[in-house]
Amino acid sequence: MIRFENVGKRYASGREALSGASFHIEKGDMAFITGHSGAGKSTLLKLIALIERPTRGTVLVNNQNTSRISRRKIPYFRRQIGIVFQDHKLLSDRSVFDNVALPLLIGALKSREVSRRVRAALDQVGLLKFENNSPLTLSTGEQQRVGIARAIVSRPELVIADEPTGNLDPELSLEIMKLFERFNQVGVTLLIATHDVELIDKLQCRRLQLESGRIVESSQSSSHGDSM
Protein backbone atom coordinates (compact mmCIF):
# COMPACT_ATOMS: atom_id res chain seq x y z
CA MET A 1 0.00 0.00 0.00
CA ILE A 2 2.81 2.41 0.91
CA ARG A 3 6.39 2.01 -0.24
CA PHE A 4 9.21 4.45 0.47
CA GLU A 5 12.44 3.91 -1.45
CA ASN A 6 15.39 5.86 -0.14
CA VAL A 7 13.29 8.95 0.38
CA GLY A 8 14.90 12.25 1.31
CA LYS A 9 13.22 15.53 2.15
CA ARG A 10 15.15 18.72 2.56
CA TYR A 11 13.07 21.80 3.32
CA ALA A 12 13.80 25.10 1.65
CA SER A 13 15.27 26.21 4.97
CA GLY A 14 18.03 23.65 4.40
CA ARG A 15 16.77 21.41 7.20
CA GLU A 16 16.86 17.76 6.19
CA ALA A 17 13.83 16.05 7.76
CA LEU A 18 14.26 12.70 6.00
CA SER A 19 17.45 11.28 4.55
CA GLY A 20 17.06 7.94 2.85
CA ALA A 21 13.98 6.45 4.48
CA SER A 22 12.84 3.08 3.12
CA PHE A 23 9.96 0.89 4.21
CA HIS A 24 6.94 -0.95 2.93
CA ILE A 25 3.49 -1.26 4.39
CA GLU A 26 1.19 -3.96 3.05
CA LYS A 27 -2.43 -3.45 2.28
CA GLY A 28 -4.47 -4.10 5.42
CA ASP A 29 -1.58 -3.38 7.80
CA MET A 30 -1.68 -1.12 10.81
CA ALA A 31 1.66 0.46 11.68
CA PHE A 32 3.07 3.21 13.88
CA ILE A 33 5.78 5.70 13.12
CA THR A 34 7.64 6.69 16.24
CA GLY A 35 10.51 9.03 16.94
CA HIS A 36 11.22 12.06 19.04
CA SER A 37 9.75 15.41 18.27
CA GLY A 38 11.36 16.74 15.10
CA ALA A 39 12.35 13.29 13.88
CA GLY A 40 10.36 13.74 10.68
CA LYS A 41 7.15 11.86 11.43
CA SER A 42 4.84 14.60 10.16
CA THR A 43 7.04 15.11 7.15
CA LEU A 44 6.77 11.43 6.26
CA LEU A 45 2.97 11.55 6.41
CA LYS A 46 2.90 14.76 4.39
CA LEU A 47 4.83 13.04 1.62
CA ILE A 48 2.18 10.32 1.52
CA ALA A 49 -0.68 12.83 1.21
CA LEU A 50 1.30 14.95 -1.26
CA ILE A 51 1.21 17.94 1.08
CA GLU A 52 4.94 17.97 0.50
CA ARG A 53 7.07 16.44 -2.26
CA PRO A 54 10.23 14.39 -1.61
CA THR A 55 13.51 15.94 -2.70
CA ARG A 56 14.83 12.49 -3.59
CA GLY A 57 13.75 8.88 -3.67
CA THR A 58 10.37 7.40 -4.57
CA VAL A 59 7.09 7.34 -2.69
CA LEU A 60 4.54 4.81 -3.92
CA VAL A 61 1.00 4.92 -2.60
CA ASN A 62 -1.50 2.30 -3.72
CA ASN A 63 0.90 1.40 -6.56
CA GLN A 64 0.97 4.99 -7.78
CA ASN A 65 4.29 6.77 -8.00
CA THR A 66 3.45 10.07 -6.33
CA SER A 67 6.08 11.95 -8.31
CA ARG A 68 3.95 11.34 -11.41
CA ILE A 69 0.87 12.93 -9.89
CA SER A 70 0.52 16.43 -11.23
CA ARG A 71 -0.69 19.31 -9.17
CA ARG A 72 -4.06 19.16 -10.88
CA LYS A 73 -4.48 15.48 -10.00
CA ILE A 74 -3.59 15.86 -6.32
CA PRO A 75 -7.19 16.42 -5.12
CA TYR A 76 -8.36 13.19 -6.75
CA PHE A 77 -5.38 11.35 -5.33
CA ARG A 78 -6.14 12.65 -1.83
CA ARG A 79 -9.70 11.35 -1.98
CA GLN A 80 -8.31 7.83 -1.55
CA ILE A 81 -6.71 8.79 1.76
CA GLY A 82 -8.29 9.67 5.09
CA ILE A 83 -6.19 12.10 7.10
CA VAL A 84 -6.40 12.67 10.86
CA PHE A 85 -4.62 15.77 12.14
CA GLN A 86 -3.16 16.38 15.56
CA ASP A 87 -4.98 19.73 15.76
CA HIS A 88 -8.20 18.19 14.36
CA LYS A 89 -8.60 20.93 11.73
CA LEU A 90 -12.33 21.16 12.36
CA LEU A 91 -14.29 24.16 11.13
CA SER A 92 -15.80 25.91 14.11
CA ASP A 93 -18.48 27.72 12.13
CA ARG A 94 -20.15 24.45 11.11
CA SER A 95 -21.88 21.67 12.94
CA VAL A 96 -20.24 18.33 13.67
CA PHE A 97 -22.39 16.83 10.94
CA ASP A 98 -21.22 19.37 8.34
CA ASN A 99 -17.60 18.88 9.31
CA VAL A 100 -17.82 15.15 8.79
CA ALA A 101 -19.78 15.61 5.55
CA LEU A 102 -17.05 17.77 3.99
CA PRO A 103 -15.21 14.98 2.10
CA LEU A 104 -18.51 13.73 0.70
CA LEU A 105 -19.70 17.11 -0.54
CA ILE A 106 -16.83 17.40 -3.00
CA GLY A 107 -17.92 14.19 -4.67
CA ALA A 108 -21.11 13.42 -6.53
CA LEU A 109 -23.33 11.88 -3.86
CA LYS A 110 -27.05 12.32 -3.28
CA SER A 111 -27.73 14.27 -0.11
CA ARG A 112 -29.63 11.33 1.36
CA GLU A 113 -26.60 9.11 0.82
CA VAL A 114 -24.40 11.81 2.38
CA SER A 115 -26.56 11.89 5.53
CA ARG A 116 -26.56 8.15 5.78
CA ARG A 117 -22.78 7.88 5.57
CA VAL A 118 -22.11 10.81 7.91
CA ARG A 119 -24.39 9.29 10.54
CA ALA A 120 -22.73 5.89 10.12
CA ALA A 121 -19.27 7.47 10.61
CA LEU A 122 -20.40 9.47 13.65
CA ASP A 123 -21.97 6.34 15.08
CA GLN A 124 -18.68 4.45 14.73
CA VAL A 125 -16.86 7.07 16.81
CA GLY A 126 -19.79 7.24 19.25
CA LEU A 127 -20.75 10.86 18.60
CA LEU A 128 -24.03 10.57 16.75
CA LYS A 129 -25.83 12.49 19.50
CA PHE A 130 -23.61 15.52 18.88
CA GLU A 131 -24.26 15.83 15.16
CA ASN A 132 -25.87 19.26 15.45
CA ASN A 133 -23.40 20.68 17.96
CA SER A 134 -20.60 23.03 17.13
CA PRO A 135 -17.19 21.33 17.49
CA LEU A 136 -16.32 24.06 20.01
CA THR A 137 -18.78 22.59 22.51
CA LEU A 138 -16.97 19.23 22.49
CA SER A 139 -14.01 18.07 24.57
CA THR A 140 -10.61 17.60 22.93
CA GLY A 141 -11.06 13.85 22.79
CA GLU A 142 -14.48 14.23 21.19
CA GLN A 143 -13.13 16.73 18.69
CA GLN A 144 -10.41 14.27 17.77
CA ARG A 145 -13.06 11.62 17.19
CA VAL A 146 -14.98 13.99 14.91
CA GLY A 147 -11.75 14.38 12.94
CA ILE A 148 -11.49 10.60 12.75
CA ALA A 149 -15.10 10.30 11.57
CA ARG A 150 -14.30 12.81 8.82
CA ALA A 151 -11.24 10.77 7.80
CA ILE A 152 -13.22 7.55 7.41
CA VAL A 153 -16.52 8.90 6.08
CA SER A 154 -15.56 8.44 2.45
CA ARG A 155 -14.42 4.88 3.23
CA PRO A 156 -10.80 5.25 2.18
CA GLU A 157 -8.56 2.21 1.96
CA LEU A 158 -5.76 4.14 3.65
CA VAL A 159 -5.93 6.32 6.75
CA ILE A 160 -2.95 8.30 8.00
CA ALA A 161 -3.00 9.95 11.42
CA ASP A 162 -0.50 12.47 12.79
CA GLU A 163 -0.30 12.26 16.58
CA PRO A 164 -4.04 11.59 16.94
CA THR A 165 -3.62 11.20 20.71
CA GLY A 166 -1.19 14.05 21.15
CA ASN A 167 -3.31 16.05 23.57
CA LEU A 168 -5.20 13.24 25.26
CA ASP A 169 -4.82 11.44 28.56
CA PRO A 170 -3.74 7.76 28.42
CA GLU A 171 -7.23 6.40 28.84
CA LEU A 172 -8.71 8.44 25.97
CA SER A 173 -5.63 7.70 23.89
CA LEU A 174 -6.10 4.00 24.24
CA GLU A 175 -9.75 4.38 23.33
CA ILE A 176 -8.80 6.15 20.13
CA MET A 177 -6.24 3.47 19.29
CA LYS A 178 -8.86 0.77 19.85
CA LEU A 179 -11.04 2.66 17.40
CA PHE A 180 -8.27 2.53 14.82
CA GLU A 181 -7.84 -1.18 15.46
CA ARG A 182 -11.51 -1.70 14.66
CA PHE A 183 -11.09 0.07 11.33
CA ASN A 184 -8.07 -2.09 10.65
CA GLN A 185 -10.12 -5.21 11.31
CA VAL A 186 -12.47 -4.26 8.45
CA GLY A 187 -9.52 -3.93 6.08
CA VAL A 188 -8.41 -0.30 6.33
CA THR A 189 -4.67 0.25 6.10
CA LEU A 190 -3.47 2.60 8.84
CA LEU A 191 -0.27 4.53 9.40
CA ILE A 192 -0.17 6.44 12.67
CA ALA A 193 2.55 8.80 13.82
CA THR A 194 3.04 9.10 17.57
CA HIS A 195 5.75 9.72 20.11
CA ASP A 196 3.78 7.89 22.82
CA VAL A 197 5.81 4.67 23.03
CA GLU A 198 4.08 3.54 26.20
CA LEU A 199 0.75 3.62 24.46
CA ILE A 200 1.71 1.53 21.45
CA ASP A 201 3.51 -0.97 23.64
CA LYS A 202 0.01 -1.99 24.63
CA LEU A 203 -0.92 -2.72 21.03
CA GLN A 204 0.10 -5.58 18.77
CA CYS A 205 1.30 -3.50 15.88
CA ARG A 206 4.22 -2.94 13.63
CA ARG A 207 6.43 -0.02 14.60
CA LEU A 208 8.68 2.07 12.36
CA GLN A 209 11.16 4.19 14.25
CA LEU A 210 12.57 7.36 12.72
CA GLU A 211 16.09 8.32 13.69
CA SER A 212 18.25 10.91 11.94
CA GLY A 213 15.94 10.88 8.98
CA ARG A 214 15.89 7.09 8.46
CA ILE A 215 13.75 4.18 9.51
CA VAL A 216 16.14 2.43 11.89
CA GLU A 217 13.85 -0.06 13.50
CA SER A 218 11.05 -2.02 12.01
CA SER A 219 9.67 -4.48 14.51
CA GLN A 220 6.51 -5.96 15.94
CA SER A 221 5.81 -4.28 19.23
CA SER A 222 4.37 -7.53 20.51
CA SER A 223 7.76 -8.05 22.17
CA HIS A 224 7.25 -4.74 23.98
CA GLY A 225 9.77 -2.95 21.79
CA ASP A 226 12.89 -4.24 23.54
CA SER A 227 14.17 -6.35 20.69
CA MET A 228 14.97 -5.80 17.03
Binding site: I51, R78, I83, K89, L102
Partner: peptide, 16 residues
Protein backbone atom coordinates in the same frame (compact mmCIF):
# COMPACT_ATOMS: atom_id res chain seq x y z
CA UNK B 1 -8.18 30.17 5.02
CA UNK B 2 -8.95 27.27 7.40
CA UNK B 3 -11.90 26.10 5.41
CA UNK B 4 -9.92 26.27 2.18
CA UNK B 5 -7.04 24.34 3.70
CA UNK B 6 -9.26 21.58 5.08
CA UNK B 7 -11.27 21.34 1.87
CA UNK B 8 -8.06 20.90 -0.11
CA UNK B 9 -6.74 18.32 2.35
CA UNK B 10 -9.85 16.17 2.00
CA UNK B 11 -9.52 16.28 -1.78
CA UNK B 12 -11.43 19.36 -2.88
CA UNK B 13 -10.19 20.41 -6.31
CA UNK B 14 -9.19 23.98 -7.08
CA UNK B 15 -12.37 24.36 -9.08
CA UNK B 16 -14.45 23.21 -6.13
Amino acid sequence: QDEIEVTKLVGGSNGY
